[in-house]
Design a protein around this nucleic acid. Structure first.
Lengths: 103, 103
DNA sequence: ATTATATATAACAAAATTTTAATGTAAGCA
DNA sequence: TGCTTACATTAAAATTTTGTTATATATAAT
């Protein structure tokens, strides 16, 4: 992972809410109500539920989720009118591994 | 290490120059000219040399070094008219360990 | 077809960050 | 003492980030 990618992730994670979101998504069962339609968290958690938990406005969270997606931290999946967001564990692991080596 | 400390370090490392400085200080011999007065890098590298390498103005680097110090990443040592800056390896290791566990 | 829901985008205001020029301070040297 | 060097602080401008309201879009429900 190159320096630009590291820097973009650092920026994404230099905001309280975005850092919280990444942690919440580690354990959707513990942090979110169940998805009535889907019945599982295989694609992560829908934007609506993330927004509810954050207390911020819908456009703010939509933007934050987009920032985290662009940084590679989240994988969005559109399903009907919902977009689910899942952690990108591979990128997160690579990020920490690179920090370990280069920081 | 608590979330506020993590967040402050993430902010400190979300700037290209500051991230570079932390990396440069990993190997002063490779990245900086020798200290004529001191003859060693036991206290790290003086602000002047860091500024020269960065290409940014003196006040900018002074401010950046202060930000990194406040985040716990650097240890400053005043010695005559020079201030030397050394990596705080303990905090850096703790930071990465916490990311490993909580991110 | 109309209405409601989930999300995205646009436009914008407030706050924080980035960076410089100017100035202050403290130590060393002529 | 006066000059120079290293660094810190202040003031200020330009840019970025944060977050909102308003609006658009797409899907689902009635």
């Amino acid at each position: 992972m190159n320096s630009d990618a590291i820097l973009e992730i650092n920026k994404a994670l230099s905001n309280t809410t975005r850092l919280e979101i990444l942690k919440w998504l580690k354990d959707p069962e513990a942090n979110f109500p169940p998805h009535l339609e889907l019945g599982h968290f295989d694609f992560g958690v829908c934007g609506q539920n993330i927004q509810d938990k954050s207390g911020l406005s819908q456009p703010t969270i939509s933007h934050y989720l987009s920032v985290m997606h662009k940084a590679g931290l989240l994988i969005p999946t559109r399903h009907g009118k919902w977009t689910y967001f899942k952690r990108n564990e591979k990128i997160i692991a690579e990020y920490i591994k690179t920090l370990n080596k280069e920081l």
